[in-house]
Computed example of a mutant assay.
Amino acid sequence: MPWVLWIPAAVALALVVLPVAGLLTRSDLSRFPELVTSSSSLRALRLSLETAALSTVACVVLGVPLAVVLARSRVRGTRVLRAVVLLPLVLPPVVGGLALLYLLGRKGFLGYVLDAVMGVQVPFTTAAVVIAQTFVAMPFLVVSLEGALRGAGDRYERVASTLGAPPWTVFRRVTVPLLLPALGSGVVLSFARALGEFGATITFAGSLEGETRTLPLEVYNQAEADIDSAVALALLLIVVAVVVIAVARPRSLEGVRA
């Protein structure tokens, strides 16, 4: 490895580590247990973990078929469809929240139908949190899976098809095993992104304690009232995210190393 690579690598590492160190120097570690175990903090943490888990499941259920379609479809316009799917990666989350609000809000064309026909109002509910998190997190899963499928090629699936296997059997017995290493990595990225989601959530779901106020929203709320509490909760969020990535990601990469 060229030694010169250590210089930008060290700068990049400092760009990530030093802001966290800044939080540590500002925090009152003696009060840390007290601050992070308050009733509002625990409710926010529980809601964050629950909604992030639900949105990750939604990402898998919806994102896996979408990634397969993008990677294997020969239909014209797939490139445009891919650009639309990846749009949440480049859009500011607040814009995504506004888009969801004007789709599913009472004045949105779909939200109006849901309210008039079923009496269902989605915005400012826990369901809205899950939808917002899924909206911003699913592209991470799709990118991981589509890249894995394109890298693996379709020769195994073609062989299975020529041997008489029906499409569903090819998908279940050939395509899914090819996806598993990337699926683990994509799930971790999606969960971590959903856990830290803020902009789309506060715009589409609001900040109602115990119902839509996730941990990032609780940090923002406490920053206006008690900065020590906000810093402690920010550190808690960092710890949870690091634990999730450190525990899950090495396992997700075992198949790649093999």
Rank of each mutant, 00 (worst) to 15 (best):
135 F>H: 07
152 A>D: 03
125 T>A: 09
143 V>K: 15
130 V>M: 03
197 E>P: 01
204 F>A: 02
168 W>E: 14
186 G>I: 00
213 R>G: 07
133 Q>V: 12
161 S>E: 15
103 L>E: 01
169 T>S: 13
123 P>A: 08
158 R>S: 10
112 Y>Q: 13
117 V>F: 12
103 L>G: 00
205 A>R: 10
158 R>M: 12
138 M>R: 10
100 L>W: 05
176 V>T: 02
164 G>P: 04
215 L>Y: 13
186 G>V: 00
131 I>Y: 01
119 G>N: 02
167 P>V: 11
139 P>M: 00
111 G>C: 10
178 L>A: 07
163 L>W: 03
196 G>V: 09
108 G>M: 11
144 S>M: 14
146 E>R: 04
139 P>S: 01
208 L>A: 09
193 R>C: 06
134 T>A: 11
102 Y>V: 14
130 V>G: 01
152 A>N: 07
195 L>F: 11
189 L>D: 03
128 A>D: 00
137 A>W: 09
198 F>K: 11
111 G>S: 10
202 I>L: 13
177 P>K: 12
107 K>Y: 13
149 L>P: 04
149 L>R: 08
147 G>K: 06
114 L>S: 07
151 G>C: 11
182 A>M: 08
129 V>C: 04
164 G>L: 05
173 R>A: 09
186 G>A: 03
195 L>A: 02
212 T>H: 00
112 Y>A: 13
118 M>E: 06
209 E>L: 12
193 R>V: 00
116 A>K: 13
200 A>T: 01
164 G>S: 04
126 T>S: 12
202 I>N: 11
166 P>D: 06
166 P>I: 05
200 A>C: 11
113 V>P: 06
128 A>H: 00
115 D>R: 11
179 L>T: 05
169 T>W: 11
160 A>F: 15
146 E>C: 04
167 P>K: 14
198 F>I: 13
120 V>Y: 07
201 T>D: 06
203 T>G: 09
178 L>I: 00
122 V>A: 07
151 G>E: 12
164 G>C: 04
203 T>W: 10
158 R>E: 15
113 V>K: 07
152 A>T: 01
104 L>T: 00
123 P>K: 12
133 Q>M: 12
163 L>N: 08
201 T>I: 14
100 L>T: 00
132 A>W: 06
187 V>Q: 12
121 Q>L: 09
113 V>M: 08
150 R>F: 11
203 T>V: 15
154 D>C: 13
193 R>G: 06
148 A>T: 04
148 A>E: 06
124 F>G: 06
127 A>M: 08
125 T>V: 08
170 V>E: 02
161 S>Y: 11
123 P>Y: 03
105 G>K: 09
169 T>V: 15
139 P>R: 02
172 R>Q: 11
189 L>R: 02
200 A>W: 09
139 P>Y: 01
129 V>H: 02
172 R>P: 08
163 L>P: 08
134 T>S: 09
168 W>N: 10
108 G>D: 12
140 F>T: 09
165 A>F: 10
153 G>P: 07
209 E>D: 13
201 T>N: 07
139 P>I: 10
108 G>K: 11
129 V>R: 02
